[in-house]
Design a protein around this nucleic acid. Structure first.
Lengths: 348, 348
DNA sequence: GAACGATGTCGAACCGGTTCGACAAGGGCC
DNA sequence: GGCCCTTGTCGAACCGGTTCGACATCGTTC
């Protein structure tokens, strides 16, 4: 069943049916009704491929996300959901593309074969060849995250620098002097992941500002790694009284490590970081954290992309979010010094 | 840049270029090389819409998943990831469609407008109008989960009945006599979600078989609901010594509730259920559970769908998985009777 | 009452591929 | 030498929409 059949049954030409549907030229009320009746009877829907071929728009956006080899974090799930939902509101479908490296197969598929009108990229790196490539081509895309040169690109992002700094200040205000930083996996840091780098920067600088003693760690994206990481932290400096984590997936493991070490949260040890609210709420005690507004980021990314698609000549826009720290139950004032070591800094 | 331009530069006809690329008719080695050189020079890639229009195949499969209004569980994330990855291996893209109800907009888009060659459905209900609709149309699809009449449909699924029964037997073997069941949200149970119903069935029947005293609950898909649910459980029957949960997202809340009630896991209270391994490992103590092989289910679904697409006449196939219970740290023998109530059954 | 603009409809061309039938050239066979 | 089969290539039709130019009709306007 195609537009020709509808036209025949309605006794009009194919173009009239097309205009009746698109409204791009006036069609008499009478004709429109006749056509609509036939369409309803037959349950006709125009073929998406034919339409895309004719008018050059697929009504689909690509969501380029990291390969499944990486563990997914809850944040990514919320992104995907909110992107799909927001896109649907603008009548766009979402095509998923597993991709990390530039110019790999699936990336080429999306762009080269014109499967999508635009793309949203996740897990941006500071130097990101995918982003450079898209920028050079002028292909409509929006990044969730920003590269080292974000000025003339489209993106939405979190101010990880400010967020981790806020965590440090929060802990310092509570009297903590020796704190650890738990980053994303080393592989991702090496690869130049934006959040890992800017988060580390913010942490380091704020800690220096406040004169804190710090150690920084990378940690695999899963609970066992988190537990191992915490053991290393306490082994390296048993006087550590707090940590800041960017690593959502390791959170459960960090808590377990603390429990095994006999450190009570928040009495003996404070934990905070940058984590989506719904994950911060699953641990006990609930995590005081800068809540990653994953759903909002996804929605904003879609809105920016749609704007870019509708008005191709608009200059680059972007949006940097800095959610406040939500006080929950995992941080508290530094109490008695840690058991093993007496450190003069502690009461300074 | 299109196939005509390639043909011109290579000095051949458009059809020859097409045959050189598809291999559906012999092309001389010399011509093939000439064409390939031009293609490489220009970085040509055939337009997906045009190809789809011409040969009727989009090389895309639809993944129909529940609307974002529902909280996503970790399981769903793993599904999506594995489906995308497996699909890529067969050269299919994945189009996400948020959909719950039958014949809603996005469902119609996918099928009516021929955006996809086939579909994978998640979150199946026992009476599922979407599934019936697809079955009636003969549209190639595979369900993750099965309806009440699964015989002549394609699906992969978990034997939730057997899994919850196994949990019950595990607890009964440890001496538990009063156990609770924590199901998915009531709304989903009412809607007829397969896992919620079959899981409940398996639980109820196995408990009856073993002569256990049980109570069953529904619980929202988030940590606060889990905590509230646990409070209700202990309020309704303080002598409860164990629970079985289907609700992954509530797990953290259940644990928190137990901690607040002063019940130590697994000394005072055993917890088990049906949960993906990576989530079972994030809680402390790690959850003894039937591990949902989400990634494997996703992969299998894609394989079945591809098979169905390649050989449209194959009779329905399906695959029911019954993963074993992984013993971790959250269950143990029933110890001293619960504090409030002495129950003769306990030592029977 | 002729010129004009707006309205409504149609046919044809086009988007960029795939595929079918035709045909020429070359080789093997009797 | 004629016949047939295979190989290699081409032109044309087709997939199912959109869009442009043309044209007929009708109501205004001077």
């Amino acid at each position: 069943m195609n537009i020709g059949e509808i036209a025949q049954r309605a006794g009009v030409s194919r173009s009239t049916v097309s205009y009746a549907l698109s409204g791009k030229r006036p069609v008499s009320e009478e004709t429109r009704e006749k056509i609509q009746r036939v369409i309803d009877d037959l349950g006709y829907r125009p073929n998406a491929s034919a339409r895309a071929l004719a008018n050059g728009r697929t009504s689909t956006i690509g969501l380029v996300f990291p390969p499944a080899g990486d563990h997914y974090t809850g944040m990514q799930l919320d992104f995907i959901g909110s992107v799909v939902e927001a896109a649907a509101a603008y009548d766009y479908d979402v095509l998923l593309s597993p991709s990390g490296v530039d110019s790999d197969r699936s990336f080429q598929r999306l762009l080269g074969e014109r499967r999508v009108d635009g793309a949203i990229l996740m897990e941006i790196r500071l130097q990101d060849d995918r982003v450079e490539h898209l920028l050079a081509e002028g292909f409509p895309s929006v990044c969730i995250g920003r590269t080292a040169q974000p000025e003339n690109d489209w993106w939405v992002g979190l101010d990880h620098t400010a967020l981790t700094a806020a965590c440090v200040h929060h802990l310092a205000d509570l009297g903590h002097r020796r704190i650890a930083f738990v980053n994303r996996p080393e592989r991702l840091l090496r690869a130049g992941y934006e959040s890992a780098h800017r988060g580390l920067d913010g942490f380091t600088k704020a800690a220096a500002e406040r004169g804190l003693t710090v150690r920084t760690y990378t940690c695999g994206d899963d609970a066992p790694s988190g537990q191992a990481c915490l053991e290393r932290i306490l082994h390296d400096d048993p006087a550590t009284t707090a940590l800041v984590t960017l690593n959502e997936a390791a959170l459960g493991g960090l808590y377990r490590g603390l429990a095994h070490a006999g450190r009570h949260v928040p009495r003996d040890f404070s934990v905070t970081g940058v984590v989506a609210a719904r994950w911060a709420e699953t641990v006990t005690p609930q995590l005081t954290a800068a809540d990653v507004p994953a759903a909002e980021l996804g929605r904003l990314a879609v809105e920016l992309l749609v704007e870019r698609l509708d008005q191709p000549q608009t200059p680059p826009r972007h949006q940097l979010l800095t959610p406040p720290i939500s006080l929950r139950a995992s941080t508290g004032p530094v109490g008695t010094p840690a058991p093993m070591v007496a450190d003069p800094d502690l009461n300074a």
